[in-house]
Amino acid sequence: MSQTSTIKHYATALVELGIENQCYEALVADLVDVDSKINENLEFKKYLTDKHVTFTKKQEALKNTFQDFISDKTYNFLYLLIKDGKLLDLSSILKIAAKTHLESQDLFEVMVESVIPLTVAQEKKIQEKLSQTIKQKLITKNIINPEIIGGLKIFLGDTEIDGSIRGKILRLKKKIEDYE
């Protein structure tokens, strides 16, 4: 489990630095962009993680690809990852960083599954209702999932509040099975 804890350190450092220099959003946006580009281009990914290629060559390759589109700080972070052999963990670092960033701002991300997109008013209502119980500021993330048929399914961290039609049907099914 030491693997995940080192990744956590990178993520925390990234978040803290970003907030100090007020460039967190830009930094993360750059990194997400880089991450998706690297994952799309497997050849490039292989080159960057190849142990036989020197660090300077990798540096050059990155500079050539992204040129001025990303900031110096982003470059530095990427160089650091390459040097430490952690480039493959970039996606997980970003995931953890997003979580840490929300926590540092005392925000809680709630995922709301619905069949049709929620309106702003609906989202606000959900936020109000939920913040009463957990006493923390919330931001909601709406996920469209036609499988639930209707109603809402809310994920509050480790807690699932299931008010969907599908959930109701499943509960009914279980009740009938148990009755037999």
Binding site: F155, D158, T159, E160, I161, D162, G163, G167, K168, R171
Partner: peptide, 10 residues
């Protein structure tokens, strides 16, 4: 009252 189920999930 509409019933919803509350579970711990992962």
């Amino acid at each position: 009252k509409e019933h919803v189920s509350v579970d711990t999930v992962g």
